[in-house]
Design a binder for these strands. Structure first.
Lengths: 348, 348
DNA sequence: CGTTAGCACTCGATGCCTATGACTGCTAAT
DNA sequence: ATTAGCAGTCATAGGCATCGAGTGCTAACG
């Protein structure tokens, strides 16, 4: 293997350049300061002098993988550099067995409740990757009715509670056009329960012939609740680790910190991931594509759950200077764990 | 009324001192820079010269109501100064009618769902006070059973869903010691539903004679869910406005910002308020008492709901340099609104 | 031709100095 | 009791020299 021979399908980078790029990325990720040729040489055993490294770095800069903050500073990876690192140089990202066990153990110890698991998942992601973590609740695709309850409150207000197959519960209040007592409400509920058991809202509507006005209202509400629509439960998001990630030096600057906090509070970017299949981990570096504001942030996200049945999203949000290996490994492992849980619990 | 005659029961401060203290607090709150004697004089029509104001300020400083960041700077209120301001000088804190209407209007426009109202309450608080807002879900004291559902999933796991009077829903998974099919589960659920309707968990246990092992497990879980215990739904907290409040100049310093973000993510201070009755607004300045870390933060919090039945907490968290008048007025108004909602919906 | 030693150069960071000016605190006069 | 006047204080900002990490270039080397 000669020096300028390239691996895989990367005609433009020599092996040595790859090695140097990888080392720069790794060093910068762990030290947070621009890395110079000399420092790189001292910490790692490359067979060459600092001058050679400087030359290679200059080439890597010309190719767009590295930059300089200013003339007399060391090199810093560009987004393209990180991207190359993630795609080709990162190697094995699987979590060590010991950590996998630890995580699995924590899940087994938690109380048997979805919300606890999601909170736990967020905590694990945050601590393991040292970044902000987000987990959304799994969303059932075609929820089938399990049980419906109509509860009268005062002032012509009725509380509707629906339990769907798999245990999703939704509730909503409903105003009555004319008063009804609890007995009448229970009767309607019983009727819908018997007709609609294990049906989705559309089938239920088709099957319920000649509904009263009130029954029609209830059905409309059911449709609305199951279609999802715009009321995607933005609150059903579990978060952790914001404090820790704000410690990172890149968030000294006011603007960067704000962009991060904003994204964390309004994680619209999680919708990005809906297009990808369950099980694949997506890496967005420096707010590629849209997400201009997140220029100094990266995210590693994945969907979890059972495709076509119930899926959610989870991931981490941190500086571009993120430990991508750990992040990808942890996100993948936790997503797989959560998928198993969903498959155990929701699919019956 | 002579100049050194005091109002109410404040023997130590003359009227003029009160006026000056009030002006200093107000000016500092709106400008965020230490206020000097001259600036104070120019903006307000006091009948005296700057030298007199300086003398009075020196007295106020000696009494502990004001400080100096350094010799050549203007005055800044101390926590004691803010406290005095809030207790005695603040005057009318009721929101103007127009704002009340606007807020009420927004509540009427929202979808009829408790979670939406809480999110809305947080949003209104955050925007109106320009600080971070927190709202916790109302917690029912002695929840009575409305409906219980047992749903079999694979792998000897049962999902238990309970609907309580008033619409609170809790769910939890339960492991079976030996397999049971859905029919058997439904039978148990039906039995508990018929016996326990409108009972609290303790009464239900008393009434259910000779329970099977599985029934006992279900009852234990019910007790655990209703006693609240340590699993106070820390996730059932609605938040808003963190981004905005982080813009305030006091959070330029890393440490202060972190303390705030921490408190916002883990709002243990909301437990502080459980001792106070519904309807009273509590003001904690500069992390008085415990909350040492929150030395540059203040909070204005209140409980809402129906005493002894279902109550939650809400409030705002911001810099000590907080518009206390608006904060108290808004928190009170929103808390009252939420109390009305709870009373309409939960009490039947 | 790739590699290397050596060296001039760049530029942020640091420290020191000197205004500048906003305020105070004091004193003496009113 | 109040006020005008003034000396004194101290954070802030700008100017300037120093330092040093790190680069880019050139010439020499194998």
């Amino acid at each position: 293997m000669t020096a300028n021979q390239s691996v895989i399908t990367t005609p433009e980078l020599t092996l040595r350049q790859q090695k140097i790029l990888g080392l720069v990325v790794k060093t910068y990720i762990s030290t947070a300061t621009p890395v110079g040729s000399k420092a790189l040489l001292e910490a790692n055993d490359l067979g060459v002098s600092s001058a050679t490294i400087r030359n290679e770095m200059a080439v890597l800069e010309e190719l767009g993988y590295l930059t300089h903050p200013h003339t007399s500073a060391g090199r810093v990876p560009t987004d393209k550099g990180y991207r190359y690192f993630v795609e080709r140089l990162i190697g094995d990202v699987e979590l060590p067995q010991a950590e996998q066990n630890m995580i699995r153990h924590q899940f087994h110890q938690a109380k048997l409740e979805m919300s606890q698991w999601m909170q736990l998942a967020a905590a694990i992601l945050a601590r393991s990757v040292r970044s902000a973590a987000l987990v959304t609740a799994p969303k059932v695709e075609q929820p089938r009715l399990r049980h419906l309850e109509l509860i009268s409150t005062q002032s012509q207000l009725v509380l509707l509670i629906v339990v769907f197959q798999g245990g999703t519960v939704r509730q909503r209040y409903l105003t009555l056009k004319e008063p009804m007592d609890q007995a009448a409400l229970s009767q309607v509920a019983a009727k819908i329960n018997s007709i609609g058991y294990e049906l989705d809202a559309a089938s239920l509507r088709a099957k319920l012939t000649d509904p009263t006005d009130f029954e029609r209202d209830v059905l409309d509400l059911l449709m609305e609740l199951t279609s999802g629509g715009d009321d995607v439960p933005i609150n059903e998001v579990y978060r952790d680790g914001l404090t820790e990630v704000l410690q990172e030096p890149e968030f000294n600057k006011r603007g960067e910190a704000n962009a991060l906090v904003n994204a964390f509070e309004q994680p619209t970017f999680l919708n990005e991931v809906v297009s990808s299949p369950v099980g694949t981990v997506q890496v967005v570096i420096g707010g590629e594509g849209r997400w201009r504001e997140l220029s100094s942030c990266s995210m590693v996200i994945a969907r979890y759950g059972v495709e076509g049945f119930a899926t959610g999203a989870l991931g981490v949000l941190g500086p571009t200077r993120m430990p991508y290996g750990r992040a990808i490994g942890t996100v993948r492992y936790v997503a797989d764990l959560m998928s198993d849980l969903v498959s155990d619990l929701y699919v019956d």
